[in-house]
Design a binder for these strands. Sequence first.
RNA 1: GCUCCCUUCGUCUAGUGGCCUAGGACACCGCCCUCUCAAGGCGGGAACACGAGUUCGAGUCUCGUAGGGAGCACCA
Length: 467
Amino acid sequence: MTVRTRFAPSPTGYLHIGGARTALYCWLEARRRGGTFVLRIEDTDRERSTQEAVQAILDGMSWLGLVHDEGPFYQTLRMDRYREVAEQLLAEGKAYYAYESKDEIETMRSEAMAAGVKPRYNGYYRERNEPKRDDPNRVIRFKNPSTGSVVFEDKVKGRIEWSNEELDDLVIFRSDGFPTYNFAVVVDDIDMGITEVIRGDDHVNNTPRQINIYKALGAAVPEFAHLPMILGPDGQKLSKRHGAVSVMQYRDDGFLPHALLNYLVRLGWSHGDQEIFSVEEMKTLFDIADVNKAASRFDIAKLSWLNQHYLKHDDPLEIAPEFEWHLRQAGIDPDIGPAPVDVIVALRDRVQTLKEMAERARIWYAPIAEWDPKAIEKHLKTDTAAAVLNLAKTKLAALADWNPAAVHGVVEQVAAELELGMGKVAAPLRVAMTGTQVSPSIEHTIYLAGREGALGRIDEALVRAQG
RNA sequence: GCUCCCUUCGUCUAGUGGCCUAGGACACCGCCCUCUCAAGGCGGGAACACGAGUUCGAGUCUCGUAGGGAGCACCA
């Protein structure tokens, strides 16, 4: 039997980090085993589901490259099917109508809590066989086995056993005529031929009752793998308080999709001491059975390190389109300055995100906005600054080819002819090019300004050197 | 309250009874390199939650304790 996994988000918000990892693991497991990855939208909660959220999830997945093979399927389009299956259960005596009001159920619940036992439905209508009648409170309940236990081998948690006495007769159809989650998932997973149910471990508690429904329906029970949670840096549940929660926020913050994928795949899973995984490697090495049981914390520092790793090692040409996107986000027009690829090469050892890179690239796409007085004082108003700037200007103007290596040659010549150390030469030029004391290597900084730009900035600096 | 789950450096993790005086990575600290800032190289501090037991031997197995989490809905 070929493997089929599914990612089944409910469209009540953006794709968050936890969901993205679940989707990644589902996708990876399907890829490694030559299976199929299905996307299903669980939108039976009409109150909270929105079309925008569906789009946000789709956008997030596509930015990460997690493409589904089938779907998206929408639960709201499958209502007839759920009804049909419920009717079948009713006909077979495996489900029944019940008529308690929500208040009555609530009372049952609080009484049970007060008595120190687990709250559960008392089964009043279970064996009554009352004929179906119209009632605003009419729901359909599943007749859960009352004895024995449910045992399953969770691929990450291991063997889990659950006594049926802990389970009650859950509602599978609400009084408003909609199926409940626990029922709809089972019907869907059966119909869609899902063989591996990979989801967050907040669902372990639902699994035993779902397994009972599978059995009542005479369907094969799939394999289950429950993923531990991803916590915030403080060990608390991930929330808006921790900054970026939406996957797309990470794009805005300047992360590469591959870096996020690499970070996520290692969060709860490992392959020996390996830290860096190409997507191809993930596809062959990832195994859901190797996932850890314990929750893990989200660490932005490590993600940043990975991001810089890819910034440094990926082909700049591949990064360029994403970088240009960030330049535009920062209000910079990539067409009126140096080639973005050249900027990437100059800055990738110095920043951790594309957002930072775009910010620092600004000096080559627009005039210097602000001159640091300290920089002028320290490096322009010196005995040698003017001589350095003048000589550099002459030599740069005469340069045959404008490239970093040639510019570097000029800087070295200036140092030699004036008998100065590199520090004395680079510093005033750096201030001239950037207005600050910090920049990439001096040859790149000059090169990226372009010949005209560089000469113009030296003139400006000369004025300030005198003033 | 009840049921289930989890527990190795600050963080992510390796570890499946002897190879562990517990390894790697991020972060941190120091040194080197150096035109600034980085990057890079080298080095350092830093963990088996606790207690019993099984065993010749336990981070690894069992039980208990503590701490954390999830669920107990006509929400997914």
